[in-house]
């Protein structure tokens, strides 16, 4: 063998049409995980205004909440968090060796449940005065 052809890892995500439930669950879990850890840092940064007194804190929080885009981003954050929680529960069961045969169904269930919870929460998130 003089040389061999390495097809690299490009095919991994180029072949997304061929992914199965477990693979999608992993991708979504990882994506939501990145979002959540990113949010954690941002969250603490925003809350840090509390050290500068009530005026700044209240002004910042209410100023952000007054923006419609922030409200939508919060719905997105809820979706991300709920999915991460539900799929996380699924993964805990997988780690305990419970229900491995129905891991695909539990993934679909967590997707559907996430959707339902998010839709049900939209009024609460978008409602309330936008000042």
């Amino acid at each position: 063998m003089s040389q061999s052809f390495n097809r690299g890892t490009v095919e991994d995500f180029g072949r997304w049409r061929e992914f199965s439930a477990g693979m999608w669950a992993w991708i979504f879990h990882k994506f939501t995980g990145w979002v959540l850890v990113g949010y954690l840092f941002t969250h603490i940064a925003v809350l840090s205004t509390a050290t500068q007194g009530a005026e700044l804190y209240n002004g910042t929080l209410q100023g952000l909440e007054a923006l419609l885009i922030v409200r939508f981003l919060e719905v997105g954050l809820l979706a991300v968090a709920v999915f991460h929680i539900l799929n996380g529960l699924r993964l805990l069961f997988v780690d305990l060796g419970v229900g491995l045969e129905s891991q695909d169904k539990s993934f679909y269930a967590s997707l559907v449940l996430t959707g339902a919870i998010v839709v049900a929460s939209i009024p609460t998130f978008l409602g309330g005065k936008l000042v």
């Binding site: 009530a54 209240n58 929080l61 007054a66 309330g128 936008l130």
Partner: peptide, 12 residues
């Protein structure tokens, strides 16, 4: 978000 609405949070 549900018990205390996010928009109504104050430092107090």
């Amino acid at each position: 978000h549900f018990v205390n609405h996010a928009a109504e949070i104050t430092l107090a």
